[in-house]
């Protein structure tokens, strides 16, 4: 199987996120999925960017889709924000012909054309829907039974589910099912589905802190070996933001490692912690790695 891939701006550029890219490349390779980077990726104009001017912002996302279409491939992305932008392009093209025309005009000025044929897929949904549990299971060489984690799906991979063509989001399980193949216990705890406040960073910091504080108290009380995040913003918020919360709210014992979803899978596939950049996270991951090694017998 071959897919085009757009990484988004955060994953390849943040120290604590490059492990996301490394692990994703490893597991896709193991699963025999060939990937081709979208050449000269452009900002997907996510979230608030879209309020600037819907035509132009969607044209920016459509630019990457047009490149994938040129390659004759569907588009994979590990970034929940990008995923949302790409899905929205196809939806608006289909439902609002006037906007479609305006987007076409912008693209054609850049010598591009997008017919709307590319299906965009979020990495985690792709693993579940297109690769499937049976296939993934064949690649698991390390049993991680005994690890207890808190999985955070984040918001933008899930909502609204009709637009994103994904499992109904109130209590999704698809990402848990994959982790359970490795024997991992994905704990159910209060707040695991709730928003992290990440998008308020830089705009309403006080509010972003208050929401994150709540999430971290939830996670702390759940007694987890690690938080596992799908969304890159969710990771920045929980990993880098944890330091802020620790100081601001005097939570001295707060030290929850935050692992990227594909990193956990890569460990299960037998990759070493060094290969997948676990040392670059803000909150040290050693304790988590030691436990994983112990239960995995590596």
């Amino acid at each position: 199987m071959k897919m085009a891939i757009a990484w988004g701006c955060l994953i390849p550029t943040r120290r604590s996120l490059i492990g996301y890219e490394a692990a994703t490349r490893k597991i896709l390779d193991d699963l025999d999925v060939e990937i081709a980077d979208v050449p000269n990726e452009t900002c997907c104009a996510p979230f608030w960017m879209q309020s600037l001017d819907i035509t132009t912002s969607l044209a920016m996302a459509a630019r990457n889709l047009a490149k994938a279409e040129e390659m004759g491939l569907d588009l994979l992305t590990p970034c929940s924000g990008c995923f949302h932008s790409y899905k929205r392009v196809n939806y608006v093209l289909q439902n609002y012909p006037e906007v479609h025309e305006r987007i076409d005009r912008i693209l054609s000025k850049a010598g591009l054309n997008y017919e709307g044929k590319v299906e965009s897929k979020h990495l985690v949904d792709f693993l579940f829907t297109d690769i499937g549990l049976d296939e993934i299971k064949k690649h698991i060489s390390v049993d991680l039974s005994g690890l207890e984690i808190g999985l955070r799906y984040g918001c933008h991979m899930l909502k609204p589910h009709e637009l994103l063509n994904i499992e109904y989001s109130e209590r999704p399980v698809f990402a848990d099912l994959i982790l359970e193949l490795m024997g991992i216990t994905s704990k159910s705890y209060i707040g695991r589905y709730r928003c992290c406040g990440g998008l308020l960073r830089g705009i309403q910091d006080e509010l972003a802190d208050r929401i994150l504080h709540e999430r971290l108290v939830d996670a702390y009380n759940a007694n987890l070996d690690a938080l596992v995040t799908v969304c890159s913003l969710c990771h920045l918020q929980h990993d880098m933001g944890q330091r802020i919360i620790k100081r601001k709210y005097g939570m001295d014992n707060l030290e929850i490692p935050v692992i990227h979803y594909p990193q956990l899978l890569a460990l299960g596939f037998g990759h070493s912690p060094e290969e997948i950049g676990l040392k670059y996270h803000t909150i040290p991951t050693e304790k988590f790695i030691q436990k994983a090694m112990k239960v995995g017998g590596v």
């Binding site: 701006c9 390849p12 490059i18 490349r25 990726e41 630019r63």
Partner: peptide, 18 residues
Amino acid sequence: ALGLDRDLHWNNEFVKMV
């Protein structure tokens, strides 16, 4: 160090136009 490409190849070609 992680075996990833150093250069990201992002550019402003498209946004210059918009």
